[in-house]
Each structure stands twice: as structure tokens, then as C-alpha cells.
Simulated scan of single mutants.
Amino acid sequence: MPMNSFHDGAMLFIYGDNKVESLGEAMEVFRSCSASLKYLEISDCDNLKSVVSGGLEHLSALEELKIVCCDNLNESEEVERVSFCQLTLLSLREMVEVPNWIQYLSALQTLHIDDCKKVESMPNWMSKLTSVRELAVGCCSAQLKERCQESTGEDWPNIQHIPDIGIS
């Protein structure tokens, strides 16, 4: 498609692309819609390893990022100049820990983690995310649920600053 067709797009879905390994491959598309794109969903991209390097920093208007069924994501990459406020991680069956790059999302207000059953704890850097107002964790491991119990859970000190917490 011509690059100017993305110029005013508010939503972009990347679905089922097994060739893409990094969002850096979509950098030109992101540059063309940097001021208008508010919602980005990446789903069923089996070879996707990186969502933050080489792409997201161009999306100055981005408000929400949703990542679904992308099991090969790098959990430890770093983020620079990314300021969206809502992140959803859904059905990341191979994810064993909350990705470290989330700690750099200073504008993040809502974090949803759903059907990521191998995640068993909340990292201690969660306490640095002072802008987060809502944490929703669903279909999680029994261990994560136990560790996040109010007052008694081992990870409670990492998330207790968040006003709205739902763990199921």
C-alpha cells in the first residue's frame, strides 16, 4: 500500500504476519502516521521478537498498545521515548515474567495481563510505575494470584500503590 494511505490512520492492526521479527520493519508506516495513530494491536505474529526497538518511538500520539499471541517477544529490551498510557498483554503463553521494558513506560496508566499463565510474580520495579492507576491480571497462575494478595502476598509491596487492582 502507498505510505500516504496510513497518514491519518487512528488504528492499526498487525495480524498473523509470521515474517515480521521487529516493529522496526514497520518504521516507515509508523513515521507516516506518527501524529494520528492512537491504537496499535499486534496479534498472532509468531516470529515477533521486538515491539519497542526501531518503531514505537515514532508514534507520538499512541495511547494504547495491545499484544496478543506473540510468544517469542524479548522480555528484556529497553524503551526510549515511548509514552502510551494503556498496555494489554494477552495470551502470551511463553512469557515467564512481566517484560522489563514496561518499567520505562512513565506515562503508563493501565496495565492488563491476561492469559499469561507462566508469569508467577510481579517484578519489584513495578513500584516505580507511579502513573499506573489500574492493574488487571486475569487467567493467571495460582502462584501469581497468591503472591499478589493484599497485605500478605510477597509481591504486594510492588503493586500496592496502584489504586485499582484486579487479580483473577
Rank of each mutant, 00 (worst) to 15 (best):
S106F: 02
Y39E: 10
P157Q: 04
I159P: 05
D44V: 12
L59N: 01
I67A: 02
L23V: 12
S168C: 12
G24W: 05
S127E: 14
K118R: 15
N158G: 05
G55N: 09
L144F: 06
L62W: 06
T130W: 01
E57I: 02
A136I: 15
L12D: 06
P123E: 12
L144K: 04
L108C: 05
S127L: 13
L90Y: 11
D46I: 13
I167D: 00
E25S: 12
L144A: 05
S151H: 14
Q103I: 06
S106A: 13
K145P: 00
L87A: 09
P99I: 03
S43L: 04
C139R: 15
M122F: 08
L65Q: 01
I162A: 04
N100W: 09
C116Y: 03
L129S: 03
A35M: 09
Q149H: 07
G153Q: 08
S22A: 07
E94C: 12
A142V: 07
T152N: 05
S34Y: 01
A107P: 00
I113W: 01
K49C: 10
S151C: 10
V82P: 02
S76F: 14
K38G: 00
N4Q: 10
S5V: 06
M95W: 04
W156C: 12
V68P: 00
E21T: 15
D71V: 05
K145C: 05
E94D: 10
L135H: 00
I162S: 07
M122A: 15
C148F: 03
R81L: 05
A26W: 15
T130Q: 15
E75G: 07
L56G: 06
G55I: 06
L129Y: 03
A61C: 07
T88C: 08
E80I: 05
L92W: 01
D114A: 11
P163G: 06
S22R: 04
L89D: 02
I14N: 06
K49I: 10
Q143I: 15
E150L: 05
K117R: 14
L144G: 06
V132L: 11
E150G: 00
D164K: 13
S32F: 04
L59P: 03
H7M: 10
A26F: 15
I42W: 03
G9H: 10
D114L: 07
L108G: 00
Q143S: 14
K128Q: 13
S36I: 00
L12F: 09
V137C: 12
L90C: 10
A142Y: 00
N4G: 02
E63K: 14
S60W: 05
S5Q: 12
G138V: 01
L12T: 07
S32R: 13
S36M: 10
A136Y: 09
W125G: 04
C33T: 07
V96W: 00
Q143D: 08
L135P: 07
L108Q: 02
V20D: 06
D71S: 10
S5E: 13
V96D: 11
I42K: 03
S141L: 06
G54V: 09
Q86V: 15
I167V: 15
E150W: 03
